[in-house]
Design a protein around this nucleic acid. Structure first.
Lengths: 348, 348
DNA sequence: TCAAAAGTGTTATCCTTACACCCATGT
DNA sequence: ACATGGGTGTAAGGATAACACTTTTGA
């Protein structure tokens, strides 16, 4: 049997292997910084918006962000909330972690390139009225950053006019460069991501689409990071407004996540007022998922799923007949395992 | 218009606000360490297993893990792969990021409490045959760490005999302590998480269940972290074997994720050989999700979904009639947006 | 009066569930 | 022979997509 002290020693050795205080350390590695970044989403006037800090620098807007300091904050989420509150005076409600990125070369700033930053992205949902106390920051339509995601007026022109041809051209010239880890050939990846040549558009693939454009060097950030300077276009917002650091990637992750999540969790109500009409609810869902897509059956769906209940009140001046007001039925959480707005799309 | 130099300066200011090189810094904060941790999952003899490094210390096994060093590795995933390979000589195939934790007090080691570690969890899937070259490490059934998840022989006894009464007792004594952020009252949370009192068991809620037991001070780790030493039981594995640091939490996250993911992505095939019978496929799905649950219709489902195709060959000595061999149809990826094993449960 | 939105009702279709039954092998 | 798993067919039931139609307001 091992002595107690011996066990302690072993345990300590394990720990040191990790934190690198002994011989196992390879460099005098300046430890990395933890960046917390929040994509705060709301729906205003039936448009999906995100809160950005306008910095007027060359590199575009940024998301609210800050450094995680374990001495100040017990958990990552607490740290995030305090940063956001400090920067925007906005208290957050629903918050969820997205992803942690640490790719070398994707945090470039003009005069201080590639610091060692691990950036942790968060998604927060709020309704714009709760956000009245907000001070700094601007709400911006997320389509400014991702114009190809904007299907409100049918297929976005940029898709077939710019993206498809340039991506295909890139795929041909870089055919050999495709990583073996990617199981699909590049052309197929492009087809699937952007719903070209008969493939169906999947509104959840926001991140995959952005990453493909980055790889192809079509978004400004790729230029900035000097990775694939393959296509030296003039600086422009043609492929969406750029953002600082890797914030556009974080925003893409956020959009993907909300779009997926409202289908199996009742998070859509985080974006609503307490009381709402079914049409308002539908508009909000459409703002997130993309419109022209659902059916009148939407009403029946949410009611029969037990997601909402009538308040008894009515709202007039809707543009037509007065509409019953509804509220979120919190009890669904106790009844169904995965309640959400299970919508299917139509062609009309 | 702002001068170019001016813009650079502003941009720099933003960056410094984050990395804290100027006045914005609050402490001489020793920067945190990044720990990479892998839950490597396989199915052996119809049982779900995870690769652990047996350290024989007081604190139980650990997952393969290591420190992330941005100088050595371009991305987090590359860093993870190299650590795992170094520790176990095992090359990883499918890898996916899970979650990043940094809760103060959840990385305790006996003699060096609460270092500032941000631990990033990863899920890896492999089939045990590919893992033949493995050197260090042991495959352990994940039910050793989560006995209440083991429904292979019907409802686990520990659920009604131990967990339910002790959690309810805890909920009553700590009624006031429930955080306001949790929307549900503690007793309802318990009911939902563990499928008590008529609620349905949701096999995906592995993490929620573990966290509840941690909060209630029933798992060893809670004791160790000296958070809720409410219940001073003798040290025991009654509520599952403990693991080092926060590794059991990471494993819980991993199990939740696989269980959810096989339903909408064809990741189950990462756990299979190249060729397999439909029954083997079913057994593997059951190993992950929990058994006694599906139907013979499983066969029709996977075939009609286009997930598999016959190889033309046959396997004998199955215990019955020889079975056709199948392989994964990689082309589903080009056809369906979210292919997976869409199984529903039955009572039988 | 008419446009716009709120609502109700009804079918056709598909998908899944459940049950029933036959086939081929090893022991 | 029989147990065990392989494999096929089909009918009942539920969900939902699609369509048709009525109601109530504000401009």
């Amino acid at each position: 049997m091992m002595s107690d002290a011996n066990m302690r020693r072993r345990s300590r050795a394990v720990h040191e292997r990790m934190v690198g205080t002994t011989k196992d350390m390879r460099h005098d590695d300046p430890s990395v910084e933890i960046g917390l970044n929040a994509a705060i989403v709301a729906v205003i006037d039936d448009a999906p918006v995100v809160l950005v800090i306008n910095d007027e620098s060359n590199d575009g807007d940024s998301l609210p962000f800050g450094r995680f300091s374990p001495l100040d904050h017990q958990t990552l989420e607490i740290g995030l909330r305090s940063w956001v509150e400090e920067q925007t005076n906005l208290g957050l409600g629903y918050v969820e972690q997205l992803y942690t990125f640490a790719d070398r070369g994707r945090h470039a700033v003009p005069d201080l390139k590639d610091p060692h930053v691990v950036s942790i992205g968060y998604l927060a949902l709020t309704n714009a009225d709760k956000a009245e106390t907000m001070q700094r920051g601007t709400w911006r339509s997320w389509y400014q950053f991702f114009p190809w995601e904007d299907w409100r007026k049918g297929t976005p022109k940029i898709l077939e006019q710019e993206i498809a041809p340039r991506l295909k051209q890139w795929a041909e010239t870089h055919a050999g460069h495709s990583k073996p880890s990617q199981s699909l050939p590049t052309l197929e990846r492009i087809r699937m991501c952007f719903g070209l040549d008969g493939a169906t558009w999947d509104e959840e693939k926001v991140l995959e689409r952005y990453e493909l454009l980055y790889e192809a060097g079509l978004v400004e950030e790729a230029n900035r990071d000097e990775r694939e300077a393959a296509s030296q276009w003039e600086r422009s917002d043609r492929f969406g407004k750029q953002m600082q650091f890797d914030h556009r990637r974080i925003l893409a992750t956020a959009i993907s996540r909300v779009r997926a999540k409202i289908k199996y969790r009742p998070v859509i109500f985080e974006l609503m007022q307490e009381e709402f009409t079914l049409f308002e609810l539908q508009k909000t869902v459409e703002a997130i998922l993309g419109p022209h897509l659902h059916k009148q059956n939407f009403r029946r769906l949410v009611e029969s799923a037990g997601l909402v209940e009538p308040t008894g009140e009515v709202r007039t001046r809707t543009g037509g007949r007065p509409a019953k007001l509804y509220r979120f039925r919190r009890n669904v959480l106790l009844e169904r395992p995965a309640p959400g707005v299970r919508v299917k799309h139509t062609r009309s």
